[in-house]
Design a protein around this nucleic acid. Sequence first.
RNA 1: GUGGGCGUAGCUCAAUCGGUUAGAGCGUCUGGUUGUGGCCCAGAAGGCUGGGGGUUCAAGUCCCCUCGCUCACCCCA
Length: 422
Amino acid sequence: MIQRPRGTADRLPDMAPAWRLVAATFERQCELRGFAPISTPTIERSELFTRTTGDATDLAQKEMYIFQDRGGDSLTLRSEGTAPVVRAYVQNGLHNLPQPVKLYYITPIFRYDRPQAGRYREHHQIGAEALGDASPAVDAEVIDLLWSTYRTLGIDDLQLELNSLGDPDTRPAYRRALVDYFTPMADHLDSESRERLTSNPLRILDSKNPAVAELCEGAPRSLDFLGKPARAHFDVLQRLLESLEIPFAINHRLVRGLDYYNRTVFEFVPPDAGSQSTVGGGGRYDYLAELIGANHVPGVGFGSGIERVLLNLERHGLTARDPRITDAYVAPLVEAAVADAMRLARQLRHAGIGVECGFRGASPRSHLRRASRSQARVAILIGTRELQRGVVALKPLNGDAQVEVRHADAVNRIQAVLTGES
RNA sequence: GUGGGCGUAGCUCAAUCGGUUAGAGCGUCUGGUUGUGGCCCAGAAGGCUGGGGGUUCAAGUCCCCUCGCUCACCCCA
């Protein structure tokens, strides 16, 4: 048997209500703030991701789905949400709109990684980006959007962690300070962290190795290296979050896995922090546009994994129910009644009634069994007798008496039964 | 990419020390009612025991490989 590719998932009907709830809640929160939907191609030119993600990141080094198309171009399956949106903003001249341009998306993300709880090779993210405005209020708005989405869903115990990485002009000094700090203790670092000492010192802070983590305690803090504007930006953001009553905690070791971030970075993590704990995260990326050859465009945004949001919904025992739309079941009792049954079903649907139609002549028993297992409140039986006399048998499934109505009156009578007038 | 655990029907699980024709519940379908649902009862369908190789008189059971799931590392959402 051919099976689905590793790390992918089939989403079956019984999972749909929860997915819809997450998507609908997020969309609603976006629309309430004037964020508009955008969607970009599933494939992009590989340079878009390789140039923005950062050479030293795991994502760029080993997790991208990269391939050559038949014309020899190198393409990559979307490995993260932000760069394509920035590309689309630039390419479509969205800087001509009032700034910031506020966008949101719900999209699959592909990363070649070993599957694990809460980790997939294809996962889905809700995400939002606000482009063209560098003020800290935009950061606060974006964080508020994600926070409100979680809260509206009923997930109220995620911890918001916050940090500022400063700007490119102060980054080298911080980087040097980290190298100076860690180099003397290089022998105590694990091999991975030692490598990062030269490739990407900031990411040493991110290590979950307890021994390394301990060494990080005394490490220089990025907040102490912020330039004046970044310092002011971070201060204002904190005041805004306080005024919005969004609780947060400064995490000096929060650096994020993509290199394009500057100033604000944030993550939402559950209290019982497991390994795949981050539910959503993001930050500011004022220099990302330049990396893809465009003019300066400040931006801030986030991505949040839908599968992980769902995990947290379950953790809270929250469930979603499907909207009930099948009101009637039309049952052809003989093969000759199938055509009439399907015609009646269409008339009912035209009148706005949800209808399931039996597809083959079968016993009333089997049709009614099926009907009562659907959500239908009324069954319409059409057999030889009904065909001969131009009527249909209308049977409410709540135990009320079955009635016979003329075929021509069927739609009105069924409507009456469904609205309880009968 | 590294390491551990686990793969038996659509689902949840049995199957003695390696021993006959791999079972049950749920679900599905059909019937019990020559045209009437839910409950109940009966019957049926449904398995290359994940796949391949090996050991053995004999393998669901032991060994190897492989694929998948899962947990941890790592990484991230």
